[in-house]
Amino acid sequence: MIPPVLDVRGLGISFGGLKAVDDVSFSVERHRITTIIGPNGAGKSTLFNLISGALTPRNGKVMIDGVEMTRGSAEQKKAAGLSRSFQITNLFFELTVAENLRLAAQLLEPPTHAFLPIRRSRRAMEKTERMLERFRLAHRRDELAGNLSHGDQRRLEIAVCLASEPKLLLLDEPTQGMSHADTQDTAALVRGLTEDVTVLLIEHDIGLVMNLSDHVVVMHQGRKLAEGPPKVVRSDPVVQAAYFGHH
């Protein structure tokens, strides 16, 4: 049997007395969109930090493609095929749009290219151009990432994550602060990704979540409250009380 792309078992961490993530288990199936929802402070971003190597879990296991990588560093997890974005836009603001993408795409090249002139890294350059086209950023390629509009920056973040051709993409509230039109646009974009990658999403917009997700995991106060197909989760009375009740 092929193992799930991501398998999280009993994951936990506390900050001081606060159990930010507490005994969370779920798995992510290949070429699906799995979404984590939950109120602010539920521990969603912390869960991403634990999975991606930004934080080291206190308890539990993280398996990527069946390989245990619980204590792996961010670089090691990247090498295993995991790419992530951040809730707060995290780009190289002083570098150009193209350079942000090229840096990410460079990982497609053999390490021997590290000390050869940049133009020798053809795959990375071609990948950069394709991402610029696909994410409609070509006309801004030489602009500094810091000068882009918020919507363009959020799109560039997704593009940067994809440029290294990961297996698993973790997106932390990609539509945060976007206009309605941009949100719809991004949703369509994310839907189109599943041909190449598996997506794990954190998303606030419930309409979007219901539309987009194959599988939903609900978190509340650090714990997993429920999981299942979007419709089932939505009508779960426990979830209704804890989460939808707030809206």
């Binding site: 995290n90 190289f92 460079q106 590290a114 000390f115 002139p117 940049i118």
Partner: peptide
């Protein structure tokens, strides 16, 4: 020469936003 290689560009990335660099896969 070195600064115009992928290695050199990682250095500029370090200066621009060091904390993002590990998530691109660079040490």
């Amino acid at each position: 020469y070195l600064l115009e290689t992928p290695f050199g560009r990682v250095l500029t990335a370090l200066k621009a936003n060091e904390r993002r660099v590990p998530f691109l896969g660079y040490s």
